[in-house]
C-alpha cells in the first residue's frame, strides 16, 4: 500500500511539473526543437531548463538509490543494469524523435494534456497507446 501511495505521488509530481514547466504545451517543445529560431530570435529555451531542473534532483536521487542498494519499500531494485547500445535502441530513438518532432508530444505530456479536453490530445494519446499495445503483442510472440 505504501508503494502505491509513493507511485501516486510520483505520478502527481510528474503531472504537476509538466504543467508548471510548460512542457504540456507542444508549441513550447517545438519552439525549443526549432534551433533555426536561435538566429531569428524566436527560440524557446524552456525545455533545456526543465531537463536541467529535473536532472538536478534526479541525479542525487539515483545516487542515493545506488548507494543504498535496496529501495526503502521494496525487496530489490528494478533499475536496469548497464547494457550495450544496440540497433534496437537506435531505431527506437529515431522513430520516437521523428514522432516527437512532428507533433511536440512525448508520452508524459500526451497524458497530461488529456486534462485540456482537446480532441487532438485524446486522439494522440489513443493512437500512441494503441501503438504501444500492438508493439507489446508483436514483441511477445
Amino acid at each position: 500500500m505504501a508503494r502505491l501511495i509513493v507511485s501516486l505521488i510520483a505520478g502527481a509530481l510528474f503531472g504537476t511539473g509538466l504543467v508548471v514547466s510548460g512542457m504540456v504545451n507542444p508549441a513550447r517543445v517545438l519552439g525549443f526543437l526549432d534551433f533555426a529560431g536561435i538566429g531569428a530570435g524566436t527560440w524557446d529555451p524552456t525545455l533545456a531548463f526543465v531537463l536541467g531542473g529535473a536532472l538536478a534532483v534526479s541525479i542525487p536521487g539515483y545516487w542515493l538509490a545506488g548507494r543504498r542498494g535496496a529501495p526503502l519499500l521494496n525487496a530489490e531494485s528494478h533499475v536496469p543494469k548497464p547494457g550495450a547500445v544496440d540497433g534496437r535502441l537506435i531505431a527506437g530513438a529515431v522513430l520516437f524523435g521523428l514522432g516527437w518532432g512532428l507533433v511536440g508530444f512525448c508520452p508524459g505530456p500526451a497524458l497530461a494534456a488529456l486534462g485540456t479536453g482537446q480532441a487532438k490530445a485524446f486522439g494522440f494519446a489513443a493512437v500512441m497507446a494503441a501503438a504501444m499495445w500492438a508493439f507489446g503483442r508483436i514483441a511477445r510472440r
Partner: peptide, 27 residues
C-alpha cells in the same frame, strides 16, 4: 517556472527509485 516544474519531475523520479526501486519512465 521551467526550473521549478523540472525539479518537480525530478523529485517524482527520485522518490520512485529511492522508495520503490522503479524507473519513472512514462512509456
Amino acid at each position: 517556472s521551467a526550473l521549478i516544474g523540472g525539479a518537480l519531475i525530478g523529485l517524482g523520479a527520485a522518490l520512485l527509485v529511492v522508495f520503490n526501486g522503479r524507473v519513472a519512465g512514462v512509456s
